[in-house]
Design a protein around this nucleic acid. Structure first.
Lengths: 234, 234, 234, 234
DNA sequence: AATGAATGAGACTTCATTCAT
DNA sequence: CATGAATGAAGTCTCATTCAT
């Protein structure tokens, strides 16, 4: 009311876009906090400061709003990763980066969205179609690449399906965060990320690394002996 | 249906207990499938083949029914573990057993209950009071003991909080199963359990034990060789 | 259970009658406490210590039970009054007796039944038919007789319809008791009865009896004196 | 119906306020007729001609609706009395005015609300908190003042607690009206008010008024005699 | 006679969604 | 574009009542 009469020169389109963003952000919060089923359009509208009807001029339905929230969220984080990951070298470094980033994201945005995805993503009557599955696939793609790469160059064990490795990586992180939320205690992201990355990486490296190390050691010794014999025989 | 037409000699009490069990089982299914909020008494009643009102003669409320479902489920699995675990010797064997059992349970009952617990366990307005938290604690107690024991006797790394280890263990399993559910493909429990247990265990052992020793040995030899070669080449 | 095997020689009929009485008494209590609508068969059954179904073998319906409760209650009090009233002589004494008795009854049984009658007796869809009206009529009959008698012999004012007098008498008593119940404070029946009876009786006596006579006498004397003075002063 | 086809120029706001009033009025009726427990939102909605849900956009709950009905009703009548009472002089005139006004109110609105207040006001589980008690207090405040005033200046007997006087005053009126409702016959308000006020007032005046009249008479006579003797002795 | 079990009908309440303005 | 108002559909829960045993 007060605002509209004074605010000049805000292009019509812009106002709409701001509003759209506001709704998306608020919805993200609300869905995060209480889950899809318990979230109400009334609450979202109230927080944004518009009427419920207004939301329906931007989004066709509650479901639609939720999907857009998820897509937006994923897009942000995927973009970030796609920007930063290439700057990092080494399988292990990349792995550690992804772990930290994931943990960071979840912590900042609450685990709500995560829970949302996990909870709602599994309904039989695929309320959200395959949207979530696809987003999840895109989101985990970089990690999958890193792991695949690792497998290829021998940094990562090749004796398990990649899918299992992915679970072994993402599972703990979600678990850590739910724990944190449940106990309402803050997580020391950096420390946790480092610990988890360490533990997981140790689990991920080929179990034969030690044998390999032995092989290498033997190679070294054999080489040294050979060189020694060569030197001696001169 | 089948029963009702000829139902003879079903002792009065028995009928009631069967009903109770039927409701519990059906409710377990329904809650698993769609979560607490989306599950409806109507649907549960429909599947059991009774009127909604009947359910309310057995359970005071939807919440009550759900709590009883969870308690029942946990009680079963906890009992099983408490029976079998003592028969197993060795930290690693116990660990592997617990992983397999957990995986097996989740697979058989669907991950629904698991999701239920994780989703509903985190609501601010503790709809379920501390019931869930306590159940969860009892359930994970054996694993925590095994890990603690391992830490004590040097089988398990001592450089991380136990809580983190727990997350590192349970997280992947849930993840694996959601994946399976999402893709509606069966899980080869034995194989998956073996793989996961292997991977996780490798992550759990103290990073410095044998490998570090190997590294040191190799370092020593390489150093010696170098010094020797240097001496020779002079 | 325990009882039935030992209790010998209680004639079948008697057991039934005891039970019937027990139900009636409990129902009276419950209806008194919470009113017809809020009273539940479950609660009554629980207090009596029988199953709900049992009550339905004694009473056709909740409504029926309630009517029987009222009839029983009225019958008791009506019988009492019909026994005692004839022993009392004098309009005013009878009046006072009735006031005290009414107050006493209501206080002992709680005002609940009274409220019940007043609340439920006025429903359009005469749930209770004319049962209540008729009971009420029988109950107030003695008081009406006393008042009519009083009017006949000049003890009670004749310038108002009897119905109004009845209201003037019973209204305050109910009011007093509701007040008491609302404030949860005990009523000093004797004192209150005396006060009320006094106040009401003073209102009931013909306004013109003694006072009017007095007025007239005074008028006469004053007139005579004036005339006399006038005559003298001339 | 009539409105909807042509509804022009009904200001947006107005429609809503009309609705609110319509609901309040209808609810007042329904609650009056059948009491709180038996009144259903369905019935109220049906009579107003809206859906049940609509009512819930105006009132948070059945209880809320009922409270608002009561408050509205009381506010109206309290306002009226506070306007008119100061214009009247003399304890007795004020008393009579209040009796007539009360009777009039109750007759117009039915005694239903009154019953509602009395019935619901006494529930143990203070469904309505102290709302009713407070309203009742405000409503009867003017009468209490008048009575207190009367006691102070000797117009009203001082030998009973005010509370008892209040009961003696309000009780009969409610009784009269219930009678009327039960018999579905109209009440001649003016006549009944006059009669009741007369009867009650007579009960309320100090019982020694007659003795006072006698005293006065004797005084008159003694005075006259004195004047007579004085005249004679001249 | 007594009852355990079951239920139909209906209560209040919530909420996503529509629509005229 | 924004919204006040309205609502249908559905949800949880209550309770008097029935019936086979």
């Amino acid at each position: 009311m007060t605002t509209s009469s004074v605010s000049r020169r805000v292009p019509v389109q812009a106002r709409s876009e701001q509003r759209l963003k506001a709704i998306l952000e608020t919805a993200r919060l609300v869905f995060s906090e209480v889950g899809y089923a318990c979230a109400t359009m009334t609450e979202i509208a109230r927080r944004v400061g518009v009427s419920e009807a207004t939301i329906f001029t931007y989004f066709a339905s509650k479901r639609d709003l939720c999907v857009r929230v998820l897509v937006t969220w994923y897009d942000e984080i995927i973009a970030q990763v796609e920007n930063e990951l290439p700057l990092i070298a080494g399988t292990r470094s990349k792995f550690t980066y992804l772990v930290r980033t994931h943990l960071y994201r979840l912590t900042v945005d609450g685990t709500g969205l995560c829970a949302l995805i996990l909870s709602e993503g599994r309904e039989k009557d695929d309320k959200f179609g395959d949207v979530i599955v696809e987003l999840q696939r895109r989101y985990t793609a970089p990690m999958m690449s890193v792991l695949a790469e690792g497998v290829a160059n021998g940094d990562v064990r090749a004796d398990m399906p990649l899918g299992l490795l992915r679970s072994a990586v993402y599972g703990p992180m979600e678990h850590v965060l739910w724990d944190a939320v449940r106990k309402e205690k803050a997580v020391d992201i950096e420390a946790t990320a480092a610990s988890l990355a360490g533990l997981l990486w140790q689990g991920l490296v080929p179990p034969d690394t030690r044998r390999a190390a032995l092989q290498q050691l033997r190679g070294d010794i054999v080489g040294a002996v050979k060189r020694f014999e060569a030197a001696v025989s001169k």
